[in-house]
Simulated scan of single mutants.
Amino acid sequence: MEAEFMNRPMSVDSAVEGASEGKGYVKGVVTYSVMDDLTVVPMSTISSVTLLNKFQIKDLGSLEEKTVGVGFDEGLNLLKASLQSKTVLTDVFLKKN
């Protein structure tokens, strides 16, 4: 049945309608984390702890949350950085150009 979704055209409107009807790939409310190399993973306690261990974060107070807006210019910068770097989000939103 899932192959059926892969073989038919879908517009943004139908994707949103399908999500509200419980159809499609994401069921219910799911939060995702976008990594610096633009990989997307479902957000969970386990994935967060794994990420903290991977980067050897011992002091949670050293972490900083940053909210960014993505407009036309940022979108172009993201596209350019994605073709040149493995640290896309850092390059676009944290490094001073």
Rank of each mutant, 00 (worst) to 15 (best):
M1V: 13
A3Y: 13
E4M: 13
F5G: 05
M6E: 14
N7Q: 14
R8A: 12
P9A: 07
M10V: 07
S11E: 00
V12N: 11
V12G: 10
D13L: 07
D13Q: 15
G18E: 01
G18Q: 02
A19Y: 06
Y25V: 15
V26T: 14
V26D: 06
K27N: 14
V29P: 14
Y32S: 10
Y32K: 08
Y32Q: 09
M35W: 12
D36A: 07
L38T: 13
T39C: 14
V40F: 06
S44P: 08
S44M: 07
T45C: 06
I46A: 11
T50Q: 15
L51R: 00
N53Q: 13
N53E: 13
N53C: 09
F55E: 03
F55H: 03
F55N: 04
I57H: 03
K58T: 08
K58W: 06
L60S: 07
S62G: 04
L63T: 05
E65L: 11
E65D: 10
E65P: 10
T67W: 08
V70R: 01
V70E: 01
V70D: 00
V70Q: 00
F72Y: 10
D73S: 14
D73W: 14
E74C: 03
E74W: 02
E74H: 03
L76G: 10
L76F: 12
L79D: 06
A81L: 05
L83C: 10
V88H: 02
L89S: 02
D91S: 01
V92P: 00
F93G: 01
L94G: 11
N97V: 11
